[in-house]
């Protein structure tokens, strides 16, 4: 399972990087979304999957799955939501101000402060 998940994560990263490198702002934002999905799964995978019951204290259960990566991922999910929202607004404000969503056209030049 861990090896399968590693491959899934690799593919998520691959798609994400490809999208991030493209020119359209929207595709870049979707790419960052995919990237965070990949990172979350990677965190869980590295610690070992399904090593016990869900980390909620239950009578008679001895082994639980590692709760720490889950806590980390929970934090990361919420943060990535904030980041995605920020990017989205940044993108549409950029589009409004500059009239383009093409990254190639957004090269700064010396006359622009």
């Amino acid at each position: 399972m861990e090896i399968l998940m590693s491959i899934v994560v690799g593919i998520l990263f691959m798609s994400a990087v490809y999208l991030i490198l493209s020119k359209s702002l929207l595709r870049i934002i979707i790419g960052t979304g995919l990237l965070s999905h990949g990172a979350h799964l990677l965190l869980l995978t590295m610690s070992g999957l399904k090593t016990g019951a869900a980390p909620v204290l239950t009578d008679g259960v001895e082994s639980y799955t590692d709760p720490l990566p889950q806590a980390l991922v929970l934090t990361a999910i919420v943060i990535s939501f904030g980041v995605t929202a920020f990017f989205l607004v940044l993108a549409y404000r950029t589009y409004q101000e500059l009239g383009t969503d093409n990254m190639e056209e957004m090269k700064g030049n010396d006359s622009n402060d």
């Binding site: 861990e2 998940m5 590693s6 491959i7 994560v9 690799g10 593919i11 998520l12 990263f13 691959m14 798609s15 990087v17 990949g38 990677l42 995978t45 590295m46």
Partner: peptide, 9 residues
Amino acid sequence: VGLTVTLIG
């Protein structure tokens, strides 16, 4: 990048 991440995982 995808390959690297898989290997690292």
